[in-house]
């Protein structure tokens, strides 16, 4: 596997995202945050800083999710649809490199997106800090420019990497529509699957309980990536928890990419 070839594929995906005006969502994000900053102060009985933080993190997650899913499912499919996969594979690029390069390109696009959103949120929060009197600032649960927000952004980013890997995995063997449905399905399940672990409270059958428990461990668990509530309330998120959650995400992504690359490598394009 060549780093140069991976980089070239990744760069082309990033350039294509720029050409497709993916980053226009940043403008919408900025307008949303600035508009909310002006409005919420009058509607929330002094909870504007908390709500701007919640909104900023939720919007980062939501915009990122749509980018991850809708671009992720098209990464491989577009090449097949345009028949450009033939000319690509005629070059000295392995199929595995193509899949990994595509993934890295979208990961970089998401990184830029999340980083700019974090910067915009900090700018809006800095403005709110600047215009708020000292007695109002003293009543905030956590500082406006709390560095802990970066932890929430980091985990959102890792969650988006996982969703991208899910989308890419499905796109290696199914249609874009089905890939989108399956990816969204996994996203929803990923926030519900804690229930699977405790299914014995609603079913009596031991094999079914074991099955649901197995599904709990096998399906992606996305809920731990959401640390918005503690971060916004100024509660500490332990470095160990963050490291283990990132580790879980990284291993899961590696599994999905390996499986996706394997399937793509065995596909017959005739």
């Amino acid at each position: 596997m060549s780093g140069g070839r991976l980089g070239a594929v990744a760069l082309s995906v990033f350039r294509e995202s720029v050409r497709d005006r993916v980053f226009y969502n940043l403008l919408l994000f900025a307008v949303l945050l600035v508009g909310a900053a002006v409005l919420v102060g009058q509607m929330t009985a002094g909870q504007d800083i908390k709500i701007i933080k919640d909104l900023g993190l939720a919007a980062t997650s939501a915009f990122g999710l749509f980018i991850a899913v809708f671009i992720g499912i098209g990464l491989v499919w577009k090449e097949l649809e345009r028949h450009s996969v033939y000319s690509l594979l005629a070059k000295p690029v392995r199929r595995t490199e193509l899949v990994l390069g595509k993934y890295l390109g979208l990961a970089f696009t998401l990184l830029v997106n999340v980083a700019v959103m974090a910067a915009v949120l900090y700018v809006v929060l800095a403005c709110m800090w600047w215009i708020s009197p000292e007695n109002i600032r003293a009543s905030w649960e956590s500082p406006a420019l709390d560095p802990a927000l970066l932890v929430a952004f980091l985990l959102i980013y890792v969650q988006l990497l996982l969703v991208t890997a899910i989308a890419l995995f499905f796109s290696t063997f199914s249609s874009p529509m089905l890939s989108a449905v399956l990816t969204f399905g996994f996203y929803v399940i990923g926030h519900f699957n804690a229930d699977l672990k405790h299914f014995e409270t609603v079913i009596a059958s031991a094999p079914l309980v074991w099955l649901t428990r197995a599904l709990y461990y096998l399906l992606p668990n996305l809920a731990p990536f959401d640390v918005t509530a503690p971060v916004v309330h100024g509660q500490a998120v332990s470095p160990g928890y963050v490291a283990m959650t990132i580790g879980y995400g990284a291993v899961y992504v590696a599994f999905l990419l390996a499986a996706g690359a394997h399937i793509f490598a065995r596909r017959d394009f005739k």
Partner: peptide, 10 residues
């Protein structure tokens, strides 16, 4: 509300 619980609470 999936992962948007804090925002929905707001």
């Amino acid at each position: 509300s999936l992962s948007f619980t804090p925002l929905v609470a707001d």
